[in-house]
């Protein structure tokens, strides 16, 4: 049994990329005390809108822009439910996911009725000759720009303090002159854009096509990663690598003779179980943000 370590690392970085983008998006949202279970649907929407636009215009760049716009709209919708109306965040987030997925499936069926369309023009990877570095620019930006930027933003900037203040104690934040609603809306819209980029990465860079199982629970994985990471940026990247490493490993193992008897689907389940395992080990004593799941009403 031989495992190609370089190919393994390369696959791991690619698989982790959407989780890094969407996971950091969810960290920013949850920092303000809002749980956005719309993440699964927002990633799905980003993947679909990105694909549709790129298929129509021939440009993956326009696809990415459209995906970002759709993610901002999805975040604003979650803001309407969770911030303005103060609905239960579990139920409204899940409802948003169900709505977005149904709407995308509806449109996909309407436009393509049973066809399996693919893009003529998708993002190309850099350095095709070097195994580990043969990655898309969204992977490079995700790991080398987004993650450090999010870490710096959350830790050392006024914006980061505002998010944290709202998430920990929104009455105090309000008294200090921070607008709770505005902060939460901005976080939801920025986070939604990042989630949509994570979804669009799959259609515009990796697959070049859209399938109905394209996200298949990756959004839920991100929710787990954020708790595992205790609402910090770098540990989300680390958790994404745990999921992706398990996934890349099972992809390699599945083609070795020793594991050929194991049904592939059971191997595919391993990364999800790895995340639950990581949560069970490191997620025990987490302290949730003070205003987690709460809606703010002044007075």
């Amino acid at each position: 049994m031989s495992i190609n370590v370089l190919a393994l690392i390369g696959a791991m970085l690619t698989i982790a990329t959407p989780l890094v983008w969407a996971g950091i998006g969810e960290v920013i949202v949850e920092r303000t005390g809002v749980l956005n279970l719309g993440i699964e649907g927002t990633m799905y929407l980003g993947a679909f809108v990105g694909f549709l636009t790129a298929a129509g215009t021939g440009s993956p760049w326009l696809g990415l822009l459209a995906a970002i716009a759709s993610g901002i709209v999805a975040g604003a919708l979650m803001g309407l439910f969770a911030v303005t109306l103060g609905l239960n965040q579990h139920v409204s987030g899940l409802g948003l996911t169900l709505l977005l997925i149904a709407a995308c499936d509806f449109t996909f069926r309407l436009l393509y009725a049973g066809e399996r369309p693919s893009l003529d023009n998708k993002f190309r990877a850099f350095f095709p000759d070097v195994e580990v570095l043969n990655q898309h620019w969204l992977t490079y930006v995700g790991f080398l720009v987004l993650a450090p930027a999010a870490w710096w933003l959350l830790r050392s900037t006024g914006m980061g303090y505002r998010l944290h203040a709202v998430g920990e104690n929104f009455e105090a934040a309000d008294v200090a002159g921070i607008s709770v609603s505005l902060t939460r809306y901005v976080a939801l819209m920025v986070g939604g854009a990042l989630m949509a980029i994570g979804g669009a990465f799959l259609t515009l860079a990796v697959l070049g096509s859209f399938t109905l199982d394209i996200i298949s629970g990756r959004g839920w994985v991100c929710i787990a990663l954020v708790i595992f990471a205790r609402w910090r940026a770098w540990p989300v990247v680390f958790g994404a690598l745990i999921f992706a490493g398990t996934d890349a490993l099972q992809l390699q193992l599945a083609i070795t003779s020793a594991f050929s008897a194991v049904p592939g689907e059971l191997m595919l389940a391993l990364p999800y179980l790895a995340v639950i395992g990581a949560l069970a080990i490191w997620g025990r004593t987490v302290r949730y943000p003070g205003s987690y799941l709460k809606a703010y009403r002044r007075g």
């Binding site: 629970g217 994985v221 787990a224 689907e265 999800y272 949560l279 025990r284």
Partner: peptide, 27 residues
């Protein structure tokens, strides 16, 4: 036992259950 958020774990086990079904049907 460990106070781990049930929202996350119940959600994550949904795709796993579907994979178990597909694995059984493929095998």
């Amino acid at each position: 036992r460990a106070g781990i958020d049930e929202v996350v774990t119940t959600l994550l086990l949904n795709p796993v259950a579907l994979l178990v079904v597909q694995g059984l049907l493929n095998g």
